[in-house]
Amino acid sequence: MAAEEGKVDPMKQFTIEPLMGSDGWQLADGFNIAFTNSALWMAITAILVTVFVAGGMKRQVVPGRWQMAVETLTGFIDDLLEANIGKAGRKYVPYIFTLFMFILFGNLLGLVPVGVIPGVHAFTFTSHFSVTGVLAILSFSIVLIVGFAKHGLHFFSLFVPKDTPFLMAIFIAPIEFVSFMVRPFSLALRLFVAMMAGHVLLKVLASFVIAGGGAGPVLGAAVGIPSFILMVAISALEILVAGIQAYVFALLTSLYINDAENLH
C-alpha cells in the first residue's frame, strides 16, 4: 500500500474503485451501477475491439494488412465453429467472435504497462469472476436455450451417451449431469484464475525488485536483477496466456454449443 513504504500489495491491483464520483449511481434501490475502473477498462476494450474490426471493413478484394488481420481472426473463429459444430456453426460466429475478441483484448489490455504514467492503473476485468462468471453464464444459457429449443425435452438424453446399456446409464447419467452443470463454473474459474495468477506473480516479483532495491546495492543486484529478468519472461508468457485463455473460452463454448446443436 502507498502508506507502507516499499511494500507492494499484490492484490491491490484487483481493487475496484468507483470513478468520477459515480459512487452513488443506482439503477434501482440497492442496484448500484457505479462506473468503476473495471467498467472503464471494459469500455476501452469495447472501443478498441470496435475500432480494430472497423479498420478491417474496407471490403477490398485485395486486402491490406489491417483488413487481412481482421479477416484472419473472423476466419479463425469461423473455422473453429465449422470444425466443432459444422455448417450450423456459422450462425454463432458473431457471438463467439465477440466473446473471443472481448476476452482477448481485456486480457491484453491488462498487460499494457500504462502504470508508468503516474496515477494511471491498468486493470484486468477478466481477473474478476464476477465478470468471467457472467460471460460463462451467457455461454451456458445459449447452450440451454439452443438445446431445449432444438430438441425439446429430448435434450436430456445428452446425459446418456449413445448406445449405453440401461444398467450403465443409471450410473452414468448423474455423472454426466454433474459434469454438465459444472461447465459454467469451470469456464469462469479457468479464465479468472489464469489471469489473476499471472498478475499476482508479476506483482510479487515486482515487490522483490523494489524491496531488493531498498536493501542496498549488493542485495539489490542479487535479488532484484534475477527477479526483473524473470518478470520480463513471465510478461511474455502472460501475453501467450492471454491469447490461449481467450481461445480456450471460445473453443469450449463452441464445444458446448455443439452438444446442443448436434445432440449425439
Binding site: I16, L27, F35, S38, M42, A46, V131
Partner: peptide, 11 residues
C-alpha cells in the same frame, strides 16, 4: 451489480 451491469452494457 455494477460489474454485471457494465459488462452486459459493453459486451
Amino acid at each position: 451489480s455494477s460489474q454485471v451491469f457494465w459488462l452486459l452494457v459493453f459486451f
